[in-house]
Design a protein around this nucleic acid. Sequence first.
DNA 1: ACCTCGCCGTGACAGGTGTCACGGGTCCGC
DNA 2: GCGGACCCGTGACACCTGTCACGGCGAGGT
Lengths: 202, 202
Amino acid sequence: MTIRLLLADDQALVRGALAALLGLEPDLEVVAEVGSGDEVVEAALTHRPDVCLLDVEMPGLDGLGAAAALRDRVPTTKVLMVTTFGRPGYLRRALQAGAAGFVVKDTPAARLADAVRRVHQGLRVVDPALATDSLLAGESPLTPRETDVLRAARDGASVATIARRLVLSEGTVRNHLSSAIGKTAAGNRAEAVLTAEQNGWL
Amino acid sequence: MTIRLLLADDQALVRGALAALLGLEPDLEVVAEVGSGDEVVEAALTHRPDVCLLDVEMPGLDGLGAAAALRDRVPTTKVLMVTTFGRPGYLRRALQAGAAGFVVKDTPAARLADAVRRVHQGLRVVDPALATDSLLAGESPLTPRETDVLRAARDGASVATIARRLVLSEGTVRNHLSSAIGKTAAGNRAEAVLTAEQNGWL
DNA sequence: ACCTCGCCGTGACAGGTGTCACGGGTCCGC
DNA sequence: GCGGACCCGTGACACCTGTCACGGCGAGGT
């Protein structure tokens, strides 16, 4: 009995390469590949895979959202997240979204097939180093609105621009920013964006 | 006669996956894999590959530097750059560093093997869409010093911090920044960093 | 010799930014 | 009910930033 796989990654090259890698295993079979999170549920409904490999960073619906959608619409398929960035917040959010495993792209290729098999058996697969980081970093201290403001500040927009985008007063934007800067122990808006991004809070 | 390949990518998973993908082709053979740019020359000297696949983003010596080192020390091996980001400046700098081909990770997996074969035959391989972007974006308008200052400003450092890092007067830093902001058509330091990064000028 | 360009610095100025104190509003849990 | 969050807003203040004008220096081209 082979394990049926669905691959989701926006980079066609690594998608195909992963397919080739996993296709070498006799007990694994890649039944579908998609390039964006929006196509995941549809492909899962038609091909009924046992395990779905999701990249976190994708255009449109990202891997976290796709995992949540799969949990609701196709609960029989297990989700294994595969990501380039080992951001602590990603791990937490992925598990909350119903993912059964979380692997960073630094892990040796040989271990990926094992991770797939374990997920298929109903086990949790988590990078141990990342798990400690996740506990250490803790949940996001930012309020929803602070997160919005920081997100809107990612491209270097001015206070006036952010205020216009979120339909807020400039003073309110400055207050939210100031609060976020304090919580991230930054001295600066740009620094706050950076550390928040590194922790997966955005 | 098989084509001997050397893979260089910091992400072990995609490195292994690419090896699996290319290993499926009967005329290709992966003879070595490395995880950083510093190991490229040494591995090339011992394994004498025909073609070397280099990722641009790597810790230590990056792909551009590794390509230049290969051109000088092991000129018999052709270089094919493989990168996630299609930044115009990367393409230019890669070609200047002696790379024979440039492929972004969005390209379909089937075309990678062809790219390798063409590079091995002495042909140039360049993503056509990226080539036009490269011509359109043009060379970096930033002077060396302006580039330094922008690089130092990437983590959101204040003018005082940048001045301390580069051993400059704060006024000079502000002047360089102002000039860079003007050249990148930005309204802001953060914006200037962003557009400079997107064009591969840093 | 001359001009140009990049580099470094100074001084001054308007405007943006970060902080604080304050008020008012909603919603939730004890 | 009553405190405690989060949200939104105002006003004021010190500070940082971005811009401009100006000067001097060295390297390279005509």
